[in-house]
Design a protein around this nucleic acid. Sequence first.
DNA 1: CCGATCTCAAACAGCCGTGTTCGAGTTATG
DNA 2: CATAACTCGAACACGGCTGTTTGAGATCGG
Lengths: 204, 204
Amino acid sequence: MSPPATTPPRRADARRNVAAILDAAQECLIRDPEATVAQIAQAAGVGRVTLYGHFATRTELVDAVFERVTAQADTMLAATDVSGDPMAALARLVTANWQVVHRFRAVLAAAERELPPARVRGHNDRHLRRLTALLARGRAEGAFRTDLPEQWLATTAYTLMHAAAHECAAGRLDPVGAGVALTATLTAAFAPPPPPGAPGGHGT
Amino acid sequence: MSPPATTPPRRADARRNVAAILDAAQECLIRDPEATVAQIAQAAGVGRVTLYGHFATRTELVDAVFERVTAQADTMLAATDVSGDPMAALARLVTANWQVVHRFRAVLAAAERELPPARVRGHNDRHLRRLTALLARGRAEGAFRTDLPEQWLATTAYTLMHAAAHECAAGRLDPVGAGVALTATLTAAFAPPPPPGAPGGHGT
DNA sequence: CCGATCTCAAACAGCCGTGTTCGAGTTATG
DNA sequence: CATAACTCGAACACGGCTGTTTGAGATCGG
């Protein structure tokens, strides 16, 4: 039989190595979703064979990292309060969610690339649902616009989070400014459009 | 020596094949940015060797397709009128630009993946500049918000165009609805935020 | 301190993609 | 129609990645 991949290793150093591998894999996949098993092993300070001793397959490793990351993400999001004024709740949720995207974007990209779609959906939908729930409530209360599909609003939010993360990674935006820009943009984009007879300049 | 890759082929059928290859490559790369040379050759109804006779390298082929696509994109965008009321001009530019993204997103992804970054920047910046120019003018005229970096507004616009294209490709949005949603969202997101003492319900 | 557990380098097999060579066959074109 | 231009399938070399085997050695843990 192969060494225990599902059963936790018996010896302390083995368990330590598994942890090191997961750490290294997460870090490597964040830098490059196509990172090689060899690269990950080296980053973990471990032989390639040892890695295969703990994770039979590259896919299995990615899956483990994905599991780990979603757990961390859940922790970061669980604390967010989505009650009260929808617009304020949106700002809170977006701020928290953006941090998650900022950190784990690349890992999710790797997961989406080589894990069965259903696997990713399951974990992802949970986060999405928190947003759509807030969206639905806010629309019912008249705090958010209802002239566009809910689906599109959710897409807008997530897309802009990814964009902010990307800009941040490229050094064109600092994390603080990104948070500000995100909430300002989404607040404006989600507010109900003023009726035709609004005050102010109207053009011709 | 190698067959004429830079010099156009002398014979009619050869020129026809080059065209077929470019067509097939464009189509294949749109479906999958990692499409194989073999797949492209087959789609073009041509032997792999023949393809290599006209394009010494996969990179060279991608470059040619990229060249072609940017030319088409330029044509589609050149006609857009960006004068007049900034908000209306934005709507026009976004609608036109979105069509481009909708069609060629995947090819650009392929190009970004395996062409020297400078190559892509050059052609891309031209389109970007049209938007930023409009942005600058609109901000100066008070039609667009100035409380966020211009860079961020541009990113927002392009990101949402890509998102709309993606939603469209996934069948969750029809092209018409996408255009509407895009302009509605960007119009709201780019408008100057109302000063603190605005009318309407304010909560608590 | 001894044995079970774990590590590891080297080397191998298999797959897949790129790019090249060869030799024979086809087709345009003057 | 004859020749230069072009096409094509098969086969090869090359490199990279995955996953496996082997056998010797290090290390934990009772």
